[in-house]
Design a protein around this nucleic acid. Structure first.
Lengths: 243, 243
DNA sequence: CGAAGGGTTGAAGTCAGTCAAATAATGTGG
DNA sequence: CCACATTATTTGACTGACTTCAACCCTTCG
């Protein structure tokens, strides 16, 4: 069987990659079929439950990954336990540098997540071969930098009300909307109130109060704590102080 | 004269570059002599006074620059005027993407500054030619990302006291120290109280009060408002909540 | 000398934090 | 499927850190 696999130079992409959700979104989009085959030999696709660290044990320490499904939170912690979420990564983002020695960032699945990870050395070799790949990684870094700086404005200068609205607006615009028609949007929050507080530099109580306020104003509708309906995203955007 | 300039392939670096402070620190370090000559034809070296935007008027809009001397602040502003400084760049950093359409960031000289700027198209062509250059730009982006995330923790989770100490510690470790021996450090603040407040997400009054407090505790000594002496940087680091 | 800008200090107000308790959602064993 | 235990979220009363508003000080510069 597999009679068509005799050539190695211009081979086809592995079947598993062809069916991959991130095939055209993640870093894999920049690779040739040959490189995909190579990468695929060492890749490891797996599920990560909400609340678990994305850093693989043993062999996978220091790996790079594609997020195929779910939301990953990147956070920093102070010696005394105070915590700050410094970034959220949505599928099909690439999860790279973070859990490298560098800065003390931890990556944890916020929701049930699926990732495809690759050993660091392989990626680094491919980066040397492919300018497109380096470009892709570079541009993701720049995107993350822009997002981080946007969030600095939120953390430093917005009120609690605006912070919570900013968060909801961020989610509304980044999550695969369960339903989006024109100006309205519906989704499940990927983060608990505690996580939201850590993302906004607030306490859970304040987050809760501001959500209640937004609900009573009619800016949002909440069902079962996690499910949110935004009837008018422009109104939410305005509440976030974005204009 | 200039008899030795007959070859064009393996020419020497331009004299002005050889004498340049950033020759080995900025992006220029990754370029070949030939590329330097090319780049030099279009480069524009100039001084920028404190308080002026670094964006060149007219021809230079959308340029990339090397910072040769001084400190540049990157800031974002909300519609109602609230402002947040999202990054400081010290010589010999590269000042790149910021004043590109993208995110509404403005770059302004905090102190008297000297920059060497290049038209965007030239840089972009060189990036295509030199993987080293792309790598260099990429790694600066990652550095800025790390710094931004560190600062998010400061903005979101630290007290006013810790924020001010964090700022002083940042300056103490980034500025060419006028005098550094062992654990002590002496320097001039590159930012006014108003700028410091915008960097820390505080008001000038709070910044002033916390500086006074740190002074009375003996953690720092202040002379003429701008001149600061840190007798023991470990103590300052501790006041910043970094351990 | 007087005006102007940057910085400090004080008094009063407010927004978000803290502490505590109630309520809702989720899970577990019988 | 129910009673119970456990956790997540909301709500309330109170406190406190930081802001706001206002006056004052100090240096600089015309």
């Amino acid at each position: 069987m597999d009679a068509h696999k005799k050539y190695t130079n211009e081979c086809e992409a592995p079947a598993i990659c062809k069916a991959c959700e991130a095939r055209h979104g993640g870093i894999c989009a920049t690779l040739t079929a040959t490189q995909l085959v190579e990468l695929n030999k060492h890749s490891n696709r797996r599920k990560v439950e909400a609340g678990n660290e994305v850093i693989g044990q043993g062999e996978n320490v220091g790996a790079y990954s594609n997020i195929l499904k779910g939301v990953v939170k990147l956070s920093k912690m102070m010696a005394d336990g105070r915590q700050q979420i410094v970034g959220l990564q949505f599928a099909p983002d690439f999860l790279g540098r973070p859990f490298l020695s560098e800065s003390s960032i931890s990556a944890e699945a916020a929701t049930e997540t699926e990732i495809c990870s690759f050993p660091r050395p392989i990626i680094e070799r491919l980066v040397g071969e492919s300018a497109d790949l380096e470009r892709k990684l570079h541009s993701q870094s720049l995107k993350e930098l822009d997002e981080a700086r946007d969030w600095m404005l939120t953390l430093g200068r917005k009120t609690a009300q605006e912070k919570v609205a900013s968060f909801l607006y961020l989610i509304a615009t980044h999550i695969d909307p369960e339903r989006t028609s024109g100006n309205s949007s519906t989704f499940d929050l990927p983060l608990s109130r505690a996580d939201i507080a850590d993302f906004l530099g607030l306490t859970i109580e304040t987050v809760s109060r501001q959500m209640t306020k937004l609900r009573k104003e009619g800016t949002i509708v909440i069902e079962n704590n996690r499910h949110v309906i935004v009837p008018d995203t422009r109104r939410l955007r305005h509440a976030a102080g974005n204009d």
